[in-house]
Design a binder for these strands. Structure first.
Length: 510
DNA sequence: GGATCCGTTGTAGCT
DNA sequence: AAGCTACAACGGATC
């Protein structure tokens, strides 16, 4: 008997999952064993590498996958807790008399790659009846490994490069539609039921109560498909006119937690939503009429994602400040634990920054432009801290954490990469009517929501409450320096100093 | 081969 | 109040 072990890692979905479809439709496969392996750390509610909301989101993705596999394909997702080699060894004990094909996923994340490597080295060499099968990437559109290893590969640096690459790979850019798979029960032979017993196996019901409750976004393929429908497929005008978001506000009238953007990123990073399906949904809408184009369109956003995946695989030390060809080693300041903590906890005395960081902590989400504002503030804008400190905090807290993208975006925003924005374009943490971050009434509401101390503050002073006359602070019931922090830095003075320091660092590097 | 252009996403000050 | 201008000025691609 041939057993296909489908190891779900970064594609927690049934739709457009080449590995699952292959197993389901293959004539050679008699039985399917879908597995998911949690690191033991999930029992701890939050850990060094995963914050509470991120852990919970991940759990809900697996929970939903378990449910959908049962309902739609009558398959039992086996969930384990422990080191992946130990878990696979224990599965091996149960499947000794079978021929086993392990379907593993490709990744650019060094942690995943190291794990896959050690599995190849220590597992397959000693288990003759086990084999591995690799299939096209499911995390990305491009076959990252193949492209990076192709002769004449050059790191893409701009949207132009990416559009060119897509044209070479897929032809006429305006009409790209990708083939996607769906497990089809009428193809292939019926699968035999199979179950294993392992000391590492754990029921999802045991883990659930250990974790925090989700505050807004619920993980899982079902939510992903519903969100795709609500925010993309049924929003044709929005898709066709998609452009750089101008307002930093995440508020919508009916639901203060709902982003003005699609909010699909956590579903893409966990693989609940296929990037190819999202691309196709956009293509279909755009065929109906006029539409924006890369870099600003939704397709453009996807191209940037692909670009960062290519870079993350081809650039040595992609996540490092030194030894990274895409990172200029700026002489950042010594780690300032007090300021870094104020930033992380939303206690900088800059309401916009603090609201964003408090939202991140509470929900695992932050608006795109908010990420720009807070990362600029931490690095070249005000606090002059190394971008890797902020990167770590984002990595841990964001429910859409993605190693390739998180590092790419920080390199971009810190102004250290060749593809990044010019270092002297510094976001104003206290935007006014002239700022690129448009100020709307909604933004004041957003700040009052996340910083209840400022709930009664007039809009006029909401971005810089310390400038409000004392009698206004008193009538708003919030004394700056007592009920809400005074600014931890003179933003204008710091901005000026940092511009000079950045320039000086660049000169030294030349 | 030097000049010019371009890169998804700026700010401050003056009129 | 919106619009213009100065600021600050990288580095690779292209002409």
């Amino acid at each position: 008997m041939v057993v296909a072990v489908v190891w779900f890692r970064n594609s927690l979905r049934i739709h457009d999952n080449p590995v699952l479809s292959w197993a389901y439709e293959s004539e050679n496969v008699d039985s399917i064993l879908p597995i998911y392996i949690f690191d033991e750390e999930i029992q701890q509610k939050s850990t060094l590498t995963m914050g509470e909301q991120r852990l919970r989101f991940q759990f809900d993705c697996v929970d939903n996958l378990h449910q959908n596999l049962k309902d739609k394909l009558d398959l039992d997702l086996h969930v384990f807790l422990g080191d992946s080699i130990d878990v696979l060894e224990s599965i091996k004990q149960q499947l000794q008399s079978f021929e086993v094909i392990l379907l593993n996923e490709y990744s650019t994340n060094p942690r995943d790659r190291k794990q896959s490597e050690s599995i190849e080295k220590n597992f397959f060499s000693t288990n003759q009846n086990w084999s591995a099968k690799s299939l096209p990437a499911s995390q990305t559109i491009l076959d990252i490994e193949a492209i990076v290893n192709s002769s004449g590969f050059k790191s893409p640096k701009s949207m132009k490069d990416m559009v060119r690459l897509f044209k070479t790979e897929f032809g006429d850019f305006d009409n790209i539609v990708f083939a996607t798979s769906e497990p089809n029960p009428s193809v292939g032979k019926p699968k035999q039921a199979l179950s294993v017993n392992s000391e590492y196996q754990i029921s999802l019901d045991k883990i659930r109560p250990l974790l925090s409750k989700p505050t807004y976004f619920i993980g899982g393929e079902s939510e992903a498909i519903a969100r795709l429908e609500n925010k993309v497929i049924s929003q044709q005008d929005y898709v066709n006119s998609f452009n750089k978001p101008k307002s930093i506000s995440t508020n919508t009238k009916d639901n203060p937690m709902e982003p003005t953007t699609t909010g699909l990123s956590p579903y893409i990073s966990t693989g609940c939503l296929s990037i190819r399906r999202l691309w196709n949904s956009c293509s279909k809408i755009q065929q109906s009429g006029e539409h924006t184009v890369p870099p600003v369109s939704l397709h453009g956003q996807i191209l940037f994602r692909e670009m960062f995946y290519l870079l993350s695989r081809s650039v040595e030390n992609w996540d490092q400040d030194s030894g990274n060809s895409q990172c200029k080693e700026i002489e950042w300041g010594e780690l300032n634990q007090v300021q870094l903590e104020a930033w992380e906890l939303g206690q900088t005395g800059f309401p916009l920054i603090d609201a964003m960081m408090r939202q991140l902590d509470a929900t695992g989400w932050m608006h795109h432009l908010g990420r720009h504002a807070v990362s600029c503030f931490l690095t070249r804008g005000q606090l002059w801290q190394n971008w890797t400190h902020g990167r770590d905090i984002f990595e841990r807290k964001l429910i859409d954490s993605d190693w390739a993208l998180n590092n790419g975006n920080w390199l971009w925003l810190a102004g250290v990469a060749p593809f990044s924005m010019p270092y002297y374009r510094i976001y104003n943490p206290c935007p006014d009517s002239k700022s690129s971050l448009n100020v709307e009434t909604k933004d004041a509401e957003f700040i009052r929501h996340w910083i209840p101390e400022l709930a009664e503050f007039p809009s006029k002073y909401i971005f810089e409450p310390h400038l409000a006359p004392l009698h206004i602070q008193e009538s708003a019931g919030c004394l700056i320096g007592k009920d809400y922090p005074s600014p931890i830095i003179d933003r204008k003075e710091a901005r000026k100093r940092n511009l000079q320091s950045f320039k000086l660092s660049l000169e030294k590097l030349r």
